Amino acid sequence: MTALYLPPFVRLGGGALNDLPDALRLAGLKTPFLITDQFMASSGLLDRVSTLLHEAGIELRAFTDAVPDPTITSVNAALTALREGRHDCVIGLGGGSPIDTAKMVAVLAVHDTTPASLRAPFMQDEPGLAIVAIPTTAGTGSEATRVTVITDETTDEKMLCMGAAYQPRIAIVDYELTLSMPQRLTADTGTDALTHALEAYVSRRASPFTDALALTAMARIWKYLPAACTDPGNHEARAAVMQGAFEAGMAFSNASVALVHGMSRPIGAHFHVAHGLSNAMLLPEITAWSLPGAKQRYATCARVMGLAGEDDPDSVAGAILVDALRKRNAEIGVPSPRTFGLNAARWDNLLPLMAEQALASGSPANNPRIPDADDIIELYRRVWA
Rank of each mutant, 00 (worst) to 15 (best):
M1L: 13
L6F: 15
V10I: 13
L12D: 02
L12M: 14
G15E: 11
L17F: 05
N18R: 15
A23W: 05
L24S: 09
L26H: 12
P32V: 01
L34A: 14
I35W: 02
T36H: 04
F39V: 13
A41Q: 13
G44H: 10
R48P: 01
L52K: 00
A56F: 07
I58L: 03
I58R: 03
E59H: 14
V67T: 15
P70W: 05
A77C: 03
A78M: 03
A78K: 06
L79M: 05
T80I: 08
G85E: 12
D88Y: 09
C89G: 08
K103C: 08
A106T: 04
A109P: 09
I131M: 02
A133D: 01
P135L: 01
P135V: 02
S142Y: 00
R146D: 11
V147T: 14
D156F: 14
M162F: 11
I170Y: 08
V173N: 12
L179M: 15
R184A: 15
T195D: 02
A197G: 13
R204W: 00
A206L: 00
D211M: 05
T216G: 15
Y224M: 11
Y224T: 04
P226I: 02
N234L: 11
E247F: 14
F252C: 05
S253A: 15
V260H: 07
P266M: 08
P266D: 11
F271D: 03
L291H: 03
R303H: 07
P313H: 09
A319I: 00
I320E: 09
L321A: 10
D323L: 06
K327Y: 00
R328T: 07
V334T: 13
D348P: 00
P352T: 13
P352Y: 08
E356L: 05
R369Q: 14
D375A: 13
R381F: 05
V383L: 10
